[in-house]
Nucleic acid binder design. Structure first.
Lengths: 151, 151
DNA sequence: AAAGATTGATCTGTCAATCTTT
DNA sequence: AAAGATTGACAGATCAATCTTT
């Protein structure tokens, strides 16, 4: 079926696009201004901190951040030269490289988390009531793009 | 308040991020493969087609597509050299430039719309029931980032 | 050969500075 | 001076090709 979207459908879809773009731009600006950190770099630090071991093989990290492996190589190289991340070869499989936060990385992430959390609360969560949140979660669950957390 | 997000809050937020990224990547690939068109270029064509006059001053167009004016200059220049858009000076205010679709632009947009609509229906609308759609729309409305349609 | 990771080429966007018209 | 638009330098991402280890 390829007939045009009706008003309801269009609203549901367009809202996703606009809300996402607005919030990403705002967060980007705030992260850059307060911490000198790009949004995707923040996401890399965040996923490392959330990982079981607080470390991840590069391609696992790429999958969670949802950028390509080669893209991640560049991001991590910059973060490493900034002293926020270190890379160590996998002792078991010599092809793999573990990325993990340095102490400086943990420190910066703490501050960045505060900035981002405040932003999410103010711009996204505050206007919504618990029913809205539950409905949203249900929608995302039905769409089924949640990350696979197995390691 | 800057305490960490709870599970419900986190699910509502993270789902937005993941769903958006997944769908954007899919649409990007399909548009590129079937029509040789980048996603943001498609969005430019689409907003021109939707505009009252089927034409817009550059900065109005930039606002709707949600990219910077300078970014838009590049996109439109490429689209113009591809023969999909033409730019004409505003007869009233010589500073302004109207962008509008060429016949080739209309034709390409028709095909691209079919691709994108099919993608939205299959990946986004199909798994959701009318209540989900209504709830989503309500969420976006409360967040209030909808475009200002006044011309 | 296959898998992990990186590099180089290219594309697309932002930012700061500039040009033109009002 | 202010507003509209563009340009040039640069940041960040993808893709194809390459290098290393298994």
């Amino acid at each position: 079926v390829d007939r045009a979207l009706d008003a309801q459908e269009s609203a549901a879809w367009d809202g996703l696009l606009r809300t996402h773009k607005f919030l990403m731009q705002l967060m980007s600006q705030q992260l850059e201004a307060h911490h000198g950190l790009a949004l995707n770099s923040y996401d890399v630090l965040r996923h490392l901190a959330l990982a079981n071991d607080t470390r991840l093989i590069m391609h696992q990290l790429a999958e969670r951040v949802m950028i390509t492996r080669s893209g991640l190589s560049g991001v991590v190289a910059r973060l490493e030269s900034d002293g926020l991340i270190q890379r160590d070869p996998d002792a078991v499989d010599g092809r793999g490289l573990y990325a993990q936060l340095t102490p400086a990385g943990w420190l910066l992430l703490r501050g960045a988390n505060a900035t981002i959390t405040a932003c999410i609360r103010k711009q996204f969560l505050a206007p919504l009531d618990p029913d809205d949140l539950a409905a949203s979660s249900q929608v995302w669950r039905k769409l089924g793009h949640s990350v696979d957390v197995r390691q």
